[in-house]
Nucleic acid binder design. Structure first.
Length: 316
RNA sequence: GGAUGGGUUGCCUAGCGGCGAAGGCGGCGGACUGUAAAUCCGUUACAAAGAAACAACGUAGGUUCGAGUCCUACCCCAUCCA
């Protein structure tokens, strides 16, 4: 079977993915799928730096504004929605462009990772969470060591979320997540893809991040979060874990000053960008696009991307 | 001018005679396969392939086997009083 084409355009937060993605989509007659864990939520526009309809220039966008902030979102949901969107795009004879900064989500689709979807039952997970609170992370880690030593070796005892997932996996499937992960990591992508990572000098990137946050505040980030809070959204929700939301929520709750909230937001966004870069460095077959190499000119970057697509024979 | 508190590695801060100096922040690096904008780990004077040695305690002296820690003088900072 012939592999279908897929373009990935990603990079750390605030590098300028959105604007480039529009130009690219227009050049290749593509449709954009957002690989972003926050832009899926309605009413979370400013803090997630969501693209607005008037900025789309007629390019179709998918997976933006599809969930209420009260709903949970995770890789599996993303994977399903994304595949669905891709089917439609292929049927229309277009090429999907996966854009967004959530590396894990991109990987899930690109490598078609199998998450052995089990039921939605979260009681065991909740059990483990209370157990962790009562007996500590080391206790859970010991439990894991007994059923899946390789995972216990790989996952630090303090990383309770991942220890819990490994235990949950074992409980649900009877297998070991370490073995499952090994298998999945061998997989070849079912797509004929090109994976671009837009990047910039670290100092420049950090400058852009801080400037963007200042703009978000001017645009009314605090008001946006206040509106969400009035609807009953609190830190317990997945959506409220987003940068810009949790910090402002703390401010609105009177736990920290606005000044502190902004400081923390900027700092954590810098950290986040660094983590994204670390992720992309580890991904294989990525094409790095460093903005300074192109004198920061979007036309030059676009020309380079188009040339890569040709060389890779994406449309064969 | 006087009183008091203080000057420790990029910043904050611990230390109360054994310090080859703890911790936090920031910086840098890394992990990640159903919460991923989440969660977690490592590292951090300089030079070096590595070992050893040397590298931060305002300055200058002194006491002591040994001083960031005690004493003296001086410089600077903060607060208060004139």
């Amino acid at each position: 079977m012939e592999k279908r084409p897929l373009i990935v355009l990603t990079g750390p937060t605030a590098v300028g993915k959105t604007s480039l993605s529009i130009q690219l989509a227009k050049a290749v007659n593509g449709e954009i799928i957002s690989a972003d864990s926050m832009q899926v939520y309605k009413g979370m526009d400013i803090g997630s730096a969501k693209i607005m309809p008037e900025e789309m220039e007629g390019v179709p966008h998918h997976l933006i504004d599809v969930l209420e902030p009260t709903e949970d979102f995770n890789v599996v949901t993303f994977q399903n929605l994304c595949k669905e969107a891709m089917e439609g795009i292929y049927q229309r004879g277009h090429i999907p462009i996966l854009t967004g900064g959530t590396g894990f989500y991109i990987q899930a689709v690109l490598r078609d990772i199998d998450f052995t979807s089990n039921d939605e039952d979260t009681t065991y997970r909740q059990e483990l969470e209370t157990l962790a609170k009562e007996k500590g992370g080391d206790h859970l880690h010991e439990m894991l060591r007994k059923v899946d030593p390789a995972s216990a070796e790989a996952i630090h005892a303090n990383n309770i979320k991942r220890v819990i997932r490994a235990l949950e996996f074992h409980q649900q499937t009877g297998g070991r997540i370490s073995e499952h992960n090994d298998q999945e990591s061998q997989k070849q992508s079912p797509y004929n893809f090109a994976y671009f990572v837009l990047n910039d000098d670290r100092a420049k990137l950090y400058e852009r991040i801080e400037k963007r946050i200042d703009i978000m505040l001017e645009q009314g980030l605090v008001e946006e979060v206040k509106t969400l809070a009035e609807k009953g959204l609190s830190r317990g929700y997945v959506s409220m874990q987003g940068l810009g939301y949790k910090e402002i929520l703390d401010y609105l709750d009177g736990e920290i000053s606005l000044e502190e909230a902004i400081y923390i937001l900027k700092r954590d966004t810098r950290h986040f960008a660094k983590r994204q870069i670390t992720w992309f460095k580890r991904e294989s077959e990525v094409i790095w696009v460093n903005k300074p190499d192109f004198a920061y000119e979007e036309e030059k970057i676009l020309a380079f991307i188009l040339k890569c697509l040709q060389d890779k024979n994406i449309w064969s």
